[in-house]
């Protein structure tokens, strides 16, 4: 698993990358009450706002961590936003992306590096 400075995790699954938010991010957000997912087949660029997450406290965005195509989204989060708090690094993945080159993932932090980043 790789981690971004925006507190997202990325996991390679065959030829796609699964994206979610870290336990730290979920805890910071508090109780999630609303999730808006991107359209399937959308072509997104790194830094695009692709998901909206709202907690009781505030709204925030998930940014596309890399360029690519959205190939699958986790509809379960729309019906059960609380999944994001229950299992952020497991069942509560947000979307899957197809990349031109999986090699770009090497630029992101390993789990140890992310832990160090959190301090």
């Amino acid at each position: 698993m790789r981690f971004t400075e925006e507190h997202e995790w990325l996991r390679v699954e065959g030829d796609v990358v699964v994206v979610g938010i870290t336990e730290h991010a979920a805890e910071q957000l508090g109780d999630v009450v609303f999730v808006e997912l991107p359209e399937i087949e959308a072509m997104v660029a790194k830094g695009d706002e692709v998901c909206v997450i709202e907690s009781v406290k505030a709204a925030s965005d998930i940014l596309a961590p890399v360029d690519g195509e959205i190939v699958e989204v986790n509809e379960a989060l729309v019906d059960t936003p609380a999944l994001v708090n229950e299992d952020p690094q497991g069942d509560a993945w947000f979307f899957k992306m197809k990349l031109d080159d999986l090699g770009v993932l090497d630029d992101f932090m390993s789990e140890d590096e992310y832990k160090e980043f959190l301090g």
Binding site: G30, D31, V33, S55, V56, K57
Partner: peptide, 8 residues
């Protein structure tokens, strides 16, 4: 703003 129980 909140305690460990959380806003909800």
């Amino acid at each position: 703003v909140q305690y460990p129980l959380g806003v909800m």
